[in-house]
Write a protein that binds this DNA or RNA. Structure first.
Lengths: 220, 220
DNA sequence: CCCTGGCAGATACTGCCACTATCTAGTTCT
DNA sequence: AGAACTAGATAGTGGCAGTATCTGCCAGGG
């Protein structure tokens, strides 16, 4: 398969394919001559995954590269999920607020809240996990807009998150035969979350409708 | 409060405050002279919300503006949740793939899947809802990387999403006294999702640890 | 009284990112 | 041979989110 054919097969412009190759997301084709290379099914697959990660998962090129690197390295080894999970960006960028003293207080409060949650859920997560850090940061930010969680509320959500995680793992086991381990991990971690988010919004939309007894769309 | 004080109170640079004002995210202060304006608590609040929406919610400036506009208009009226919900970006941008014919087939298949789900869940959501469209697009994309949902699997997730939505609404009712209606809606819709995402990742991390019986972090 | 420091509002500039285009030189098909 | 393609390198584009600068202008202290 020549590059132009690869392009046609995936709908990705040739220039973009070259770009991805440059950036190390896509392995080069097998060169058959100085100005010709052969691409295969593997490249089609990879290109599809790249597109899915960037459009559906919303990942940057840099992050996609990291994730794909993790995928490649974990292809055989165990712990693929962990490695990839840690490679994914935590959707919170700490924002240093005005008052330094207040800040420190909010910091420890949020961290304590997370620690308590982990304790309550009997989770084994180490405090060093980026997710733990991220969660603390998120809670802090929410407190700042007066939207902190009541004690116990967070645990209720965590319980549901656990159910989702269990479903995820079952699902992963179910397509064992179709997709390689590491790629399944990516799919579960990076590509399923938009689906979940949309389901949540749909459910919310619906709950609100139910409670107000209206079947029509809301007036904007 | 002068602009420099507003800046100090929120940790946002003066230049950025001016930028937000230009972009219509932040109302102008009350001018007391040609070169002086007075800002109040309202502005501090708003600035915090803007920061939360952009950093925590990951919204663009344009989207933030839309959301805030919806917030302002819905402040009194009902249907705030709906309006804001629709203003939020759907985390899927349809990507036209290679083959046009295959494409159409995948389209209708995905739409049917969503319709079936809505039917099964007894949801009242109109097919015109951006969430419905987005979900169909997301499913299509997943199919393309061989990660489609088995029949029934999606419904299981939807069930959990419903539970989350119910928790959300309870939570919203609980801080009725603290935050205005429309702002609660924003918080639930745009600001809580990172928390949920992180909880899910934590839960996954933990489930994997449990199943493999390891308490230490995964080797990268 | 006037000068210094800060302010409003407008405009221009910057850095980053994800492509996209162009150029050179070589290769294959017919 | 010549048109049509290819690889690889380099440069350019457009959008986004600020950041900086410039021009008056004015309040308050010495």
């Amino acid at each position: 398969m020549k590059i132009s054919e690869l392009s046609r097969a995936t709908g990705v412009p040739v220039a973009s394919i070259k770009y991805f190759r440059r950036e190390g997301l896509l392995p080069a084709g097998k060169a058959t001559a100085a100005t010709l290379a052969e691409y295969g099914e593997r490249h089609v697959q990879r290109l599809r995954l790249i597109k899915a990660l960037t459009t559906l998962g919303g990942l940057s090129i840099a992050t996609t590269r990291e994730v794909l690197t993790a995928v490649d390295q974990a292809q055989t080894s165990d712990g693929a999920l962990g490695a990839i999970s840690y490679a994914l960006p935590v959707p919170v960028t700490a924002s240093p607020a005005g008052d330094a003293e207040e800040e420190a207080k909010a910091d420890t409060a949020a961290e304590a809240e997370v620690a308590e949650l982990i304790e309550a859920m009997d989770w084994w997560t180490p405090a060093s996990s980026p997710h733990v850090q991220g969660l603390a940061a998120a809670l802090k930010e929410l407190r700042r807009v007066d939207a902190g969680y009541e004690p116990g509320e967070l645990a209720a959500y965590a319980e549901l998150a656990r159910s989702v995680a269990r479903l995820d793992l079952e699902r992963a086991a179910a397509f064992e035969d179709r997709v390689a381990l590491a790629e399944r991990a990516v799919i579960l971690l990076a590509l399923s979350s938009p689906v979940l988010e949309l389901l949540r919004r749909l459910a919310q939309e619906n709950e609100v409708r139910r409670r107000t007894g209206r079947r029509e769309p809301d007036d904007a």
